[in-house]
Structures are given as structure tokens and as C-alpha cells.
Design a protein around this nucleic acid. Structure first.
Lengths: 251, 251
DNA sequence: TTTTATTTGTCCGTATGTATA
DNA sequence: GTATACATACGGACAAATAAA
């Protein structure tokens, strides 16, 4: 193929971008090509030396560009195989009204929640504090697995006061949605009051459940939802597959 | 030492927690001990076999508990040496008024910004879109390094319209703060309009600048700030050291 | 510098209770 | 009811990295 037209390589363009690092120009061009759909999700990019020939740059310059795209999660390099276009991250809006099913559904995807385990046990201290519960009280703990279009998106651990939601596990298992579970208890509306985000590396258990390679980055999200009157309802610790999700906070 | 008192091991407690997985009980106890300050930041926990003896459980059970704490970033295991308490993450509030200097200063730490590179160049397409700039216009790109108490917190790439902020680099270098830089242009107030968060692994360059081990998780934050009238002012792509930072969104 | 002890990481195995098919 | 799979808990052995003698 005459890649010239597909990738719109340097030539005339480059003189215009005088002063911009070469690797950055290459990265921008490749990112545009991916954004335009020239390379679809899962497609293999041309080999590094081919890209280098196309842009008349050294292969190391291409590698620097690909590294930048890789850090942004646009591509993934597989040694001995090639460099592949990653699926675009699913935008996951977070605000006062954060609901998994609605968020995923809004992107035209099929949301799926599944209860993988549950238990009734004393609340861990941090959770008790966040739910404003007495120290020794009981909580229902739900281990949830969430999908979008059959692709695992996150695993989550949710705690609810056992007194108010005694059989939350059964209800969730039947309803397969937090919103519908709460509706079953007469709670027609609730809102996100606190969201804390950091990142870590997936442990083997989460990696397996999220279908990730061990050591993949995950987004750790600690959140609290409350009734409209401010009463804390549930605390959740979610682990999102970072390579598939982008949290969006609109102010 | 008679660790019994320090760690408050099983015994009577455990019968109460009937039905809760043993490793989870151990993890909760250790987390509490850390929260209480029994083990300070940087302190070495007792060896796995000591903890196992203390709680009368198998070493594997202790390892399962430590793995859970490790995923939450509370501890870090070093083979041949021991398991150490990690520093608590610096809470970094994000909202309509997000300012690095204020955020860091609010925690009683000394905020530091440093310009490590700058350039005037055509805006990359995604940035042009986010700043509502014409396709071929020029932008000032600032590469920033941000510290809290001399500890590197994040590296950031900021784009500003070159027309409105022609010598932004010089101003920032002198003011060492985005807020003061904008004030220099007569902008007394601005607000965060969009924040997108995901995670990735640090590349070698960022790892070196953030003083992280290569492969450490980083938080990727894409943000846009605008004037009070809604005019986009700057777009930023920040890379936070995830092990030192927790983004806090209050609704 | 070499040796030795300590500590975490990984692997083998066994057994039990609990869901699920 | 039976068989299967899974999570949990325990026991042992050795490798690999570290730290101290």
C-alpha cells in the first residue's frame, strides 16, 4: 500500500510544525489516524520500521511517539507481534447522580450487574465511619461484578447497613442493579456525596475477574451514596479496569 | 514482645466474627493498627510468620490479608526485607475551584511548581477542540513539575492559546503558579469545567521525574479550565504519582 | 568479600465447607 | 441426590532478595 495517503506523513506538513519535537508530530499524526478510524480497534499498526520509513524518521523517533500513545492508552505494544489499537475507553460520568446502569446505557451499551458473593458481618471501622454507623453494628457486604456489553468493567465491594437492608443480597441478585435494589426498599432517589479516586496495580484475583493481565493498572474508587435527606445508604470500593474506563467529572 | 496487646489478635474476637473469612479479619485488624498509629509511616510490620503466630493462623492466611492491604496501597512488601507501611495519600480535592497551590497548601504542605520546558507550536487536534480554538492556531505548551514538601506529585502538560498568552512560559517561570500566571493577564478567577480521569503505567521519563519505580501506576487527568464567562483558558494533561495522591471529588 | 540468617515469593500438596450445574 | 467447581485454611519446601555478621 502507498501509506502516504493513509497516514499523511511529514513532507510539507513538517515544515509548518517547525520547532515541535519530531516524535510529537508523529504521535499526533498517528493519534489522528486512529481517531479518524484509519486504524480500527484491535488493528495492528504498521511495524515501527515501516512507520519510520513513512515519516522519514529514525525508528527510535517512532518508538518515542508510540510510547506516548501507549501511556495514553491508545495503543498497546506486544513484543514480537506488533502494536495494536486499544478500544477507546468507555466514558463513565460521575456526579451527584451516578448510576452504573444509566452511565453504561447512555453509551448505547448493555449494562450488566452480577452478585458474585455476599456476607453479613461487622462493619470494618473505615466503612462504619463513612456510613455514620456505630462501631459494632452489622453490615451486608456485596461483591459485585459489572459489565458493559459483556466486557468486564469493574468489580465492586458494597457495604450497606444490615438493619435497614437485611436481605440486600437476595434483592440485588434478583434486580441486578443498585438503583432497583434501593427502589425495592422504597428509596426512589439517592445521590453521590463523596468520591475518592486513586490507582493501583491489579492483584491476581481482580485481574482474573476483570480479564486483565496481572499488573495492569486499575482505578480505585471509594464512594458514598446517600438518601436525599443526607442519610448515608451505602459505601462502595470499586476497582475499574483502567484501560477500558475513563471517569468523567463535569462541573 | 507480647504482640497480643499491640495487634489485638484473634481469640475472643474471632468467635464474634463467625462467618467472616479469616484473612479478612486479619486484614481489618492490621488496617486498624495502622490507622491507630501502632505502626507509623515507613515502619516495618512484623514478619509474616510472626503475624501468623500472633493470630494463630497459617502464614498463607496472613499473606492473603497483606495482599489486600497492598492493593489498597496501605503497605508495600519488599522481598528479603519486610513489609512496610506506606505514607497516606495526599488528598487532592477537585471541583469547580481546583488550584494546585491551594490544594497542597490546605494540607499544610509547601506547594512547588517548576517549569521544565516550554514551546510555542500548533495545537494538537484534541486540544484545539477542548479549547474551542481554530484548527491551525498556535498554542503555548508548558511542561510543569509539581511538588508537595519537595516530594514530586505530578508532571503536567498545559496548553494555552498563544494569541492571548504569548509569553506564558516566562510568566509561569517567574510566578511558579498557574493562578498567579493567569492573574498576570488580568484573570482574577477561573474554574474547572471538565475533568477526565484514568490510569496507566508510568513510562520511563515520567517515572524518573516523579521518582517512581518504572511500571508504577499513575493517574492520568485531562482537565479544562475556563474564565468565569465560560471561555476556555487552558487544557492540561497531568500525570499524578498514584501512590502519593488520592483525588477527592465532593458533590 | 564471603557467609549466614532472615524475609518475602512461589510452588507443591491436603482437607473442608459451600455454592452451582 | 450427585458431581463439580470454588473459596478458604493449613502444612511444608525451596528460591530469591536482602541485611547483618
Amino acid at each position: 500500500m502507498s501509506g502516504s495517503k493513509i497516514l499523511e506523513p511529514a513532507g510539507a506538513e513538517r515544515s509548518q510544525d517547525a520547532g515541535v519535537a519530531l516524535w510529537r508530530q508523529v504521535a499526533d499524526q498517528l493519534a489522528q489516524a486512529i481517531a479518524r478510524g484509519t486504524f480500527e480497534t484491535g488493528a495492528r499498526l504498521p511495524a515501527e520500521k515501516e512507520i519510520a520509513a513513512l515519516y522519514r524518521v529514525n525508528r527510535h523517533t517512532v518508538r518515542r511517539a508510540l510510547a506516548a500513545l501507549s501511556e495514553r492508552g491508545l495503543v498497546r505494544a506486544a513484543r514480537g507481534s506488533g502494536t495494536y489499537v486499544e478500544a477507546p475507553r468507555l466514558a463513565y460520568p460521575i456526579g451527584t447522580r451516578t448510576r452504573f446502569s444509566e452511565n453504561v446505557g447512555a453509551s448505547g451499551r448493555q449494562a450488566g450487574g452480577r452478585l458474585i458473593a455476599s456476607a453479613e458481618e461487622p462493619v470494618p471501622p473505615e466503612i462504619a465511619q463513612r456510613l455514620a454507623l456505630p462501631r459494632k453494628s452489622l453490615a451486608v457486604r456485596l461483591e459485585l461484578m459489572r459489565h458493559a456489553d459483556r466486557v468486564p468493567v469493574c468489580v465492586a465491594t458494597t457495604w450497606l447497613p444490615a438493619g435497614r437492608f437485611p436481605d440486600a443480597a437476595e434483592i440485588y441478585a434478583a434486580q441486578r442493579s443498585t438503583t432497583r435494589m434501593l427502589a425495592h426498599y422504597g428509596i426512589s432517589d439517592y445521590r453521590r456525596v463523596s468520591t475518592r479516586v486513586t490507582a493501583a496495580l491489579a492483584d491476581i484475583a481482580d485481574a482474573a475477574r476483570l480479564d486483565l493481565r496481572p499488573g495492569s493498572p486499575i482505578l480505585l474508587v471509594d464512594s458514598v451514596d446517600a438518601a436525599v435527606d443526607g442519610t448515608p445508604l451505602l459505601a462502595t470500593r470499586s476497582r475499574f479496569a483502567a484501560e477500558r474506563i475513563e471517569l468523567v467529572f463535569e462541573s
